[in-house]
Write a protein that binds this DNA or RNA. Structure first.
Lengths: 220, 220
DNA sequence: CCTACCGATCGGTAGG
DNA sequence: CCTACCGATCGGTAGG
């Protein structure tokens, strides 16, 4: 990102610069891939396009990734790790500020963050994971399923608590599936509020906050 | 289907047989395409595979369809027309049997039928429409959007009525989107109850009736 | 990371 | 609808 700033780090400059550059190119590949995979789908996206998007030559992505599938996996793993970390941070912050926060408030945090991850700026990674997992092989699928479980783990106790006090009317298991469906599907119809729509089919321009409140009143 | 039975129809046998055969092969193509498109996705499915699945030669699908995209469109149009017709039939039958049926009962019919179309036997067409529309060109997309609107049109008055009597707590527009999301997402996790699962990731084995009731208690 | 390249596949066509 | 085929593309590699 800010390679122009902080030009001369103190210690062992050469190796550090090399490593950082490698990391940057690798990260640039992952970001370009995420963007194109979301826009056109995994199969319809060419490794050449991804390379071109960051000024690389057609064969160069394979210096960083063994094959196209591995690049797809990297997009998903990167996105999920960040999403899980952010989710944890938000919940911890809530428990610090208001230790007695009830389950409804926790659910609001979870839903709001989920919309952020799906629809916010730089939100290409998770939609790719949601809609392109079929392209992974079975070993890769296992590893992202672990991350998915870890992400969903934070939701279970919240939904259970809501179920116990009768705010959530359906059983936890099926409620979780339906709620995630309602949220994940927003990728298909949501249009970011600030971007002028160019005759697109997508329709809704509510803010992520408004979406969150609508989801809460619908489910609880 | 049953070409071996009913061998000799009475009138103008030659032309009728030719027409029916053409229609059958075309329909067979559409069905095979729907199945494979749902299983592997549009881009990952080869026109050769589709042909092979019904014993055709690699080039023969292009006798029936100008190109692969047109075959995809045919899958979607076929599925939607059938879904719309069935939906109408069900609602008309309800109004005949119990003319004063309230909105909750109508919504149950709509949701139950939607699950049928998504998850029931021979339910490949609509999932393909939901998840592969990106592969269409803009003209094709317009024509299936019309069908989508026609399908959703039956839901609007029902949701409005539920909104007026305070059974639906969020506004109609956003509720519709979230409800469709919750339902459509079931394609991702639902495993048909009767089929033994072979180490799949998918998890839920409830019947479509149980799913319908769960959705109703969650939303209303 | 670039240059130059290959093998395979795939949508689609001509001609019957 | 089959036979035989083509042009283009694409993932991936060797060698530097």
């Amino acid at each position: 990102m800010n390679t122009s700033l902080a030009k001369r780090p103190r210690g062992r400059p050469k190796k550090t610069e090399e490593q950082r550059d490698d990391g940057n190119r690798r990260q640039a590949l992952i970001c370009a891939a995420a963007q194109l995979f979301k826009l056109k789908g995994y199969d319809a996206t060419t490794t050449r396009e991804i390379a071109a998007q960051i000024g690389m030559q057609p064969g160069s992505p394979f210096y960083h990734f063994e094959n196209k599938q591995d690049l797809l996996l990297a997009v998903m793993v990167d996105g999920m790790k960040r999403a899980i970390a952010d989710q944890h941070t938000l919940l911890k912050a809530l428990l610090t500020q208001s230790p007695k926060a009830n389950a409804s408030i926790k659910l609001r945090i979870l839903i709001r963050h989920h919309f952020e991850v799906l629809l916010g700026p730089q939100s290409d990674f998770i939609p790719v994971m949601l809609y392109e997992s079929r392209a992974l092989n079975s070993v890769q699928r296992l590893s992202i399923n672990k991350l998915k479980d870890s992400y969903e783990a934070a939701w279970i106790p919240v939904l259970q608590e809501l179920c116990h006090c009768n705010k959530l009317k359906a059983p936890v298991g099926i409620s979780r599936l339906m709620i995630f469906g309602a949220l994940n599907w927003s990728v298909q119809w949501y249009e970011a509020p600030l971007i002028k729509n160019k005759n697109r089919v997508k329709s809704h321009h509510a803010s992520l906050d408004e979406l969150t409140e609508a989801a809460l009143v619908l489910f609880l």
